[in-house]
Every structure is written in structure tokens, then in C-alpha cells.
Nucleic acid binder design. Structure first.
Length: 829
RNA sequence: GCCGGAGUGGCGGAACUGGCAUACGCGAUCGACUCAAAAUCGAUUGCCCUGACGGGCUUGUGGGUUCGAGUCCCACCUCCGGCACCA
């Protein structure tokens, strides 16, 4: 008897799948298109190819592949493509360090990912493979940019950005962790630069409303996006600086506290600051303060705990509700990027304004009755942020603040001094990057014509080869003089190319559409293909993309639908977020030296073991700690299944006749049908793979327990054969090579072409049940009883039990609870 | 501070709609096979008392509802994740 040899089995089936192109599917209109089958688009987030795949990849694709297989065997035509999110910073950093061009390092990594995905046996339609760094792909990324530009959804503007002084480059928001550069740990600074933005804020309301359209997304991901979008209802109120004739709108969620405004604060970045203080005695102090704030890191500035600072401007504005003049300040606790960059300060009812008022000895005025001991800081019980009756607010006094709120907004509106307003925390998406390794922004700058988009028919704007990748405070592309100098597409005069590239999140915001028609060189995609396959039915990936990627892709889908290129509003109907695998309780990292190399485990135990293990270690949506012993346990289980197959194959298992089976043979068949039922339900109930696999383990254990007694007769051998074949069929989505091999040996055909097994209700039902007998809720005995026994019969049985009688002894039964088929509880006193 | 999630054996975890707590796996102990070891197969394994039969206790803590609570309700503690001077 030869042992379980995953190397041989896995190579064999990988060859079959590659040669026969088993997992390729056709588009509408193409030969082989399956018109009658329902479609299912199963997609895992595409990997960023850097080095080699890690365990996170293994888990993501193992989970996704299990789902793809499960759906195929339920009659769906499953599209399951793969690609690479190949532009990005790590390849560029590597280039700066080693001089190796990013393209070369990226291609090498892609080769490694591709090879390992094949070695893992993931059922990928390789005919649809793509890389976002190829001109064939980014040509269409640029095309989408132009479409957004045409619609006014892409625009160029000056804005404060996050700047890392050590790397001399802007950083994406997601690369700023706790106010520090993710790469080098340096506190980031803010700079003002002219940049390209996508107008995602236009979609804030729809991004919130369309959560309704989603089938199944984890609640916490929806919540995170909601918080990120940060919708607040309130009012815009205009305060006027009479001296200069300037209007200052502010956004407030508390127009009911307007009468309590005792001062007014601008953010240090406020554009009118210069005009307010130029030539005044305050000028020097304000300048100094603004410069000091500009030098502060984002981390320092964000610290709520430090004392409030600011400088008076020597100017005042008029409060529109009572005509009061209140002094103006500049202070860094007011942020330019939220609201209008200016606030009315109500120290009586806002803790931050209160702190500032105390520091600068400004009046604190109560306009709403009430005290909250949690926030109160003085004898008056202020500040107070709760509800109550209005006071010190003229004709609104005595009214509830909620009621006054509406009246004040209505009054402001009638006076033209304000209006109801909604404000979002969400900012427009800054997509420019002063980096080399990304898709060039398809725009030129002409002295005569200004910003001119590159015409569609001249795409792609190809990324030129350069030699020095180091950032110099501008894009390394700026050094490619021959490339930068071009002619204006409009007037033909001299023009210069945009040297910034696009954020890599732009590339990954539409790749799931390109998969549907990846070789199209006349269009980004064929509309019929997109209409057929979209939306993605099941998306799988790490929760770290809960906001950025998932929100950007939702935005793109909506924008493209508005442009008329897509027929869906949401890209991903269902989302599954897999948890992170740790080792020794810590996140894996090269610096900690606790990484797990999937290749090493695949080499030692085979892909089936590695895949099954990551699905078995716990509920896939939760994280788990990697355990070498756990891997061995799964390998042991697969080996047991293998040996069972070899044994029963040798014994010559024939067709099983479940109706005729008796005794242990029948019990084994019942166990097999129980496992089918359990595994199927676990799959459907949120991909509970750990318990589905446990059910197959139980089936194999049961087969081992009884097999030696069954080999004697043909019906018994057939039952063992059925158990082994069923186990193979159920384990196939996790361990496809072993599943296919065992099934072929026992059944002669291909398990992936067989429908998912169905549990036979006749074998799920048992004619006896274990009756649990309790006395006062405590378990006292277990009795085998007929499944169809009446309540009276069950009570009879319970009372007859010796173990039960011992506890009834001399006591009075006051109540009898009978749950048919389950339990009897006797309540005694 | 706000939002979300989780606390169950030595460990990872299971338990459907309120009905056998600890499935499955790991680890550990013992046995079979072996000259021996590994591998494999089998048995035992929540804690406490008992020679045994048995009994008592146990799902973060405290209370409640119920014939019956890991599951429902109230209060609290701890841990993890996200956001955070958002006006």
C-alpha cells in the first residue's frame, strides 16, 4: 500500500485542469456560452504582487475557491478570474534601493504568484488574467479618467496634502498611520499643492443610501463606511465682518445655540486670514502662529489633550441672530478640511470652545437649561451639550431646543443669513501621486490652451523608462524631459505632460469589470459582457480594505453607470471579509521574523493540507493563530481519508443500496448523510468552513470505527465505499486534488462535474432518539426511546428510570415538562 | 470619547429557534504493533470529592426571567478592531 503522496496527486490534477482549461467560461455571444445556467461571479481581491504570496493570500484564495467550487456544483456558471494590482510604492522603493526597474521586480513577483496559485490548485479562469501595470490595462484606466474629467468628476485644485519630509513625497491618506509615514515613521506635515481630485463627495448621499441595494455585507463594514462618510445635519449660517465687507459662512449642527456664540474662530489655513490681518497690529503674531502650526506634524495637531492655542485677529463678525459683534481668532483646533474652515464658538455648550474660552478669558454664556455632570466643568454646570429649554435667546426662550432649532433655521433662511445644510466628513479623493510606478495622468499643459486632456485615440500615455526613481519633491517622471515635452493636442503648440501618476486605488477600482472582457482593445469592456456578469455576487478579501478600496469601487461603479457605461449601481452584492492569521499571537512581519511561507508548507504537506488547514483553524471571518501542530492534524486527516480510499478500493466496493442496508452499514450511511447535511448547511450559513470540515472528519472517524466489521459482506464494503466517496466529494472544495483523486478511484468520473450531494431524508431521520431526563433541570439519565413515542410514553420511561427515581425519592412531582423527541423534565418539591 | 466585535477545557474552537455544555482538531496519558523509535491503530482526557458506585461545581463578574440560560433581560469588568479637536 502506497501512502498519501500529495505531490503526485496535485501535479496530476493541475495538469488536467490546465490542459482542459476546466475553469474557463465564455461570454455571451462566444462559443461555449452557457445561456441556461444562472451565473455567479466569485471574486477575491486581487493581490498586490510583492515578493511571494503570504498566508493571507493563501487564506483569501482558499476561501474564495471553496465558494467557487460549491457554486459550480450547485449548477452555477461561475466566473472566477485573477489578476495583479501591480503598480505601487513597494516596487518603487525597491527600485530606489537596488536600482532594479519596478517593472522587472513586479514581473518576477507576478511569475511567483501565478506559479503558486497554480500549485495551490485554485480554480482560476486564466484566460482572463490581467496586470494593472500593462499598457493594455492602464490605457483604459486613463480612459476612465478622461470620462470623469468630461463629466467634471475629475478636477485639479490646490489643497493641503500629507507630506513626508524624509521620503520627499506626498502620501496617500492610507499611508499615514497615526500621523506618521507608514514607510519611515516620520511625522507627516501638511503642504499646499495643486493636485488632481475625483469628486467622490458628489456621491456621498448615494453611497449611504445604496447600502440598501446590497445583499450581504458585514454590518461592521457598512458602519465603518457610514462613519467615514460622516453625514451631519445642521445649518449653514453666515457671519459678516462689516469692516471688510466679508461674509463667513459656518456649518453648525447646533443652530439652536446661536445666541450663545461669544467668539468666532478660523482655521490657520483659512484663505481669508491674510486679508483680515494684513497691515494690522495683529499681523506679525498671526503670521508667526500660522507658521508654527504649519510646522506641526499631523500627529501633534490632532492631540485633543493638549491645551488650546490661538491668536486674536483684532477683527469681529456679527452674529446674525442678535446683531452682536464677536471677536475673531485663529486657532489650530479648527480644521480647514471640515465644514467651511470657520466656526462660531459656543463655549457654554461645546467642550472645545469652552476650553478655548477659559484659556483666553472669553465670556461663557448659557442658552440651554440643563446640566450633565459628566461634562460640567464649573459652578454653572457648563459646558452642557444636552437638550433643554432655551434661555438667553430672546423670543425663543422657554421653548425646547429641538423646536427652536427648526424655527431658527427657518428664520435664518427668510433673512438670507443661512439655511439648513448637510455636511460630510468625506473629502474628495486625491488621486495625484508624485511617483513613477503608476498610470500616468492623461493630461497635458499648454501655455495657450491650459489643461488639455489627451484625446482617447492617443491613449495610452505610456509610462517611459527612466533611470532615477528617487523622489525629489516632484515626480521622478519630470526628469524624463523627452517624454514631458510634447505638443498640445488642441493647438499643436508646445506643451508639457502631467508628470504625476494616479493613485493605485484608481487601478483597482474597476479591475473587476475588465476581467469580463480583458482582451478588448477597442473598448474598456463589452457592455453585454458587463451586463451579463455584474455585479460580483460574492467578493472576498481582507477587512483592511473596508473603507478605501470598497468605497472607491462603489463610487466608480456609480459614476460609470451615470456616464452610461454600466447597468449596475453597486459592484459587490455580497462581501465576505476574512480574518487575519497571526503567529504566536502577533501580526506576521519580516522584522519580527514570524512569517509563515505558504510555499514551505505546500512543499512539505501539499496544497490540499495547507488550504484545508486555513479553512479549518477557526471561522474564516475571524483571525487565528498559525499552529504547525494544527497543520499536521489536517494532514493526518487527509491521509486517513486517503488510506480509507485505498483500502476500500482494494476491497472492491460496489454500488450502495441504502434502503437495504442494515446495522452498522446503515448507521455509517446515516452518518454520511448527516455529514452531507451538516456541511451543506455550514456552507450556506456564512461559510462556516471549520465546522463543515469537522463534519467530514467525523464521517471519516466513524468509517474507521466500523470498517473492519463491514468488509465481510458486499453491502458493508459498499457502505464504507460510500462513506469514503462522500467524504471526498464534501472535502473537494477545500482539498480539490485529493477530492478529485479519491472520487475518481471510487466512482470513476470527475467530482467537479457531479452535482453537490444531497442528504437523503430517510437516512437523516432515526427511529430512536436519546431522551434526556432531567429532575429540576439537572440531567439525571439518558434513555433510548422510539422517535415517535407519545408524551405519555416518554413520561412513563422517565419515571421508570432507576437513576431518576433516586432523585424523586419522597418528593412530590409538581410539574412535568415534555419536549417530544428531546427531553423530559420533572420538577419536584 | 464615539461606533463595532468578542470573552466557553491546558490551547484553537463547537453548541441551529431557550432543551445532553465542551463537537472537531491540537496537546497530554496509557495500550497495541516494533528489538527499538517514528508512523499507524485503539482507549482515556473540563474541575473537585470518592477505592468504586455515585455526587458536587463549571461558559468574564454580579443580579434577574424561566420547569430549564453559554444562548434572553439589567448592571459591571476585560480584550480586540475602526474613527476621533468633525463644529
Amino acid at each position: 500500500m502506497s501512502g498519501y503522496d500529495p505531490k503526485a496527486i496535485e501535479a496530476k490534477w493541475q495538469r488536467v485542469w490546465a490542459e482542459e482549461r476546466t475553469w474557463e467560461v465564455a461570454n455571451p455571444g462566444q462559443p461555449g456560452f452557457e445561456a441556461e445556467k444562472p451565473k455567479s461571479y466569485v471574486l477575491e481581491m486581487l493581490p498586490y504582487p510583492s515578493g511571494e504570496p503570504h498566508v493571507g493570500h493563501l487564506k483569501c484564495y482558499a476561501v474564495g475557491d471553496a465558494i467557487a467550487h460549491f457554486r459550480r456544483r450547485h449548477g452555477f456558471e461561475v466566473i472566477h478570474p485573477m489578476g495583479y494590482d501591480a503598480f505601487g510604492l513597494p516596487a518603487e522603493n525597491n527600485a530606489i534601493k537596488t536600482g532594479e526597474p519596478p517593472r522587472a521586480a513586479t514581473e518576477r513577483s507576478i511569475d511567483s504568484f501565478r506559479r503558486q496559485f497554480r500549485e495551490w490548485g485554485i480554480s482560476i479562469d486564466w484566460s482572463r488574467e490581467l496586470g494593472t501595470h500593462t499598457p493594455e490595462y492602464y490605457r483604459w484606466t486613463q480612459w476612465i479618467f478622461l470620462k470623469l474629467f468630461e463629466r467634471g468628476l475629475a478636477y485639479r485644485a490646490e489643497a493641503p496634502v500629507q507630506w513626508c519630509p524624509v521620503d520627499a513625497t506626498v502620501l496617500a491618506n492610507e499611508q499615514v498611520v497615526d500621523g506618521r509615514c507608514e514607510r519611515c515613521g516620520t511625522p507627516v506635515e501638511q503642504r499646499r499643492l495643486e493636485q488632481w481630485f475625483f469628486r467622490i463627495t458628489d456621491y456621498a448621499e448615494r453611497l449611504l443610501a445604496d447600502f440598501e441595494l446590497l445583499e450581504s455585507w458585514p454590518e461592521h463594514v457598512v458602519t465603518m463606511q457610514r462613519n467615514w462618510i460622516g453625514r451631519s445635519e445642521g445649518a449653514e449660517v453666515v457671519f459678516r465682518c462689516e469692516e471688510l465687507g466679508l461674509d463667513f459662512p459656518v456649518f453648525t449642527t447646533r443652530p439652536d445655540t446661536l445666541f450663545g456664540a461669544t467668539f468666532f474662530v478660523l482655521a490657520p489655513e483659512h484663505p481669508e486670514l491674510e486679508r483680515l490681518v494684513a497691515g494690522t497690529p495683529a499681523e506679525a503674531a498671526v503670521r508667526e502662529y500660522v507658521n508654527r502650526v504649519a510646522r506641526e506634524s499631523v500627529e501633534e495637531r490632532g492631540d485633543e489633550a493638549r491645551p488650546k492655542t490661538g491668536v486674536p485677529l483684532g477683527r469681529s463678525v456679527v452674529n446674525p441672530v442678535n446683531g452682536e459683534e464677536i471677536p475673531m481668532f485663529v486657532a489650530d483646533y479648527v480644521l480647514m478640511e471640515y465644514g467651511t474652515g470657520a466656526i462660531m464658538a459656543v463655549p457654554g455648550h461645546d467642550t472645545r470652545d469652552y476650553e478655548f474660552a477659559r484659556a483666553f478669558d472669553l465670556p461663557v454664556r448659557r442658552v440651554i437649561e440643563g446640566v450633565d455632570p459628566e461634562t460640567a466643568r464649573d459652578d454653572e454646570g457648563l459646558p452642557y451639550a444636552g437638550d433643554g429649554a432655551m434661555t438667553g435667546s430672546g423670543r425663543f426662550d422657554g421653548k425646547g431646543n429641538r423646536e427652536a432649532y427648526a424655527e431658527i433655521v427657518a428664520w435664518l433662511e427668510s433673512e438670507g443669513r443661512g439655511k439648513a445644510a448637510v455636511n460630510y466628513r468625506l473629502r474628495d479623493w486625491l488621486v495625484s501621486r508624485q511617483r513613477y510606478w503608476g498610470a500616468p495622468i492623461p493630461v497635458v499643459y499648454c501655455k495657450e490652451c491650459g489643461i488639455v486632456p489627451v484625446p482617447e485615440d492617443r491613449l495610452p500615455v505610456e509610462l517611459p523608462e527612466i533611470e532615477d526613481y528617487a523622489p525629489q519633491g516632484r515626480s521622478p517622471l519630470a526628469a524624463a524631459e523627452e517624454w514631458v515635452a510634447t505638443e498640445c493636442p488642441r493647438c499643436g503648440g508646445a506643451a508639457r505632460r502631467e508628470t504625476d501618476t494616479m493613485d493605485t486605488f484608481v487601478d483597482s477600482s474597476w479591475y473587476f469589470i475588465r476581467y469580463l472582457d480583458p482582451r478588448n482593445d477597442a473598448a474598456a469592456w463589452d457592455r453585454a459582457a458587463a451586463d451579463h456578469w455584474l455585479p460580483v455576487d460574492q467578493y472576498i478579501g481582507g477587512v483592511e480594505h473596508a473603507i478605501l478600496h470598497l468605497m472607491y469601487a462603489r463610487f466608480f461603479t456609480k459614476a460609470l453607470a451615470d456616464i452610461g457605461e454600466l447597468g449596475v449601481q453597486e459592484p459587490f452584492a455580497s462581501l465576505f471579509t476574512q480574518g487575519m492569521i497571526t503567529r504566536d499571537g502577533a501580526k506576521m512581519s519580516k522584522s519580527k521574523g514570524n512569517t509563515v511561507s505558504p510555499a514551505e508548507y505546500v512543499e512539505r504537506y501539499g496544497a490540499d493540507t495547507a488550504r484545508t488547514y486555513v479553512c479549518f483553524m477557526g471561522p474564516p471571518e475571524r483571525g487565528g493563530d498559525w499552529s504547525d501542530e494544527g497543520v499536521e492534524g489536517v494532514n493526518r486527516f487527509l491521509s486517513r481519508l486517503w488510506r480509507l480510499c485505498e483500502e476500500v478500493e482494494g476491497a472492491g466496493a460496489g454500488e450502495v443500496d441504502s434502503a437495504a442496508a442494515e446495522g452498522e452499514a446503515r448507521e455509517l450511511l446515516a452518518k454520511a448523510h448527516w455529514a452531507i447535511d451538516k456541511a451543506t448547511r455550514d456552507f450556506q450559513r456564512g461559510f462556516q468552513f471549520n465546522t463543515a470540515i469537522a463534519a467530514v472528519m467525523e464521517l471519516v472517524n466513524e468509517a474507521y470505527r466500523v470498517k473492519d466489521g463491514l468488509y465481510g459482506d458486499p453491502a458493508g464494503t459498499a457502505a464504507v465505499g460510500f462513506a469514503a466517496a462522500t467524504a471526498a466529494s464534501l472535502i473537494f472544495p477545500f482539498a480539490p486534488h485529493l477530492g478529485a483523486e479519491v472520487w475518481e478511484r471510487l466512482r470513476g468520473d470527475r467530482v467537479w462535474e457531479r452535482p453537490w450531494p444531497q442528504a437523503d431524508p430517510a437516512l437523516l431521520a432515526s427511529d430512536t432518539v436519546t431522551l434526556v431526563v432531567q429532575v429540576n433541570g439537572k440531567l439525571r439519565d439518558r434513555i433510548e426511546a422510539a422517535a415517535d413515542a407519545s408524551e405519555a410514553e416518554l413520561l412513563e420511561l422517565a419515571r421508570a428510570s432507576e437513576k431518576v427515581r433516586r432523585h424523586l425519592d419522597g418528593k412530590e412531582i409538581v410539574k412535568e415538562v415534555v419536549v417530544p423527541g428531546k427531553l423530559v423534565n420533572l420538577v419536584v418539591r
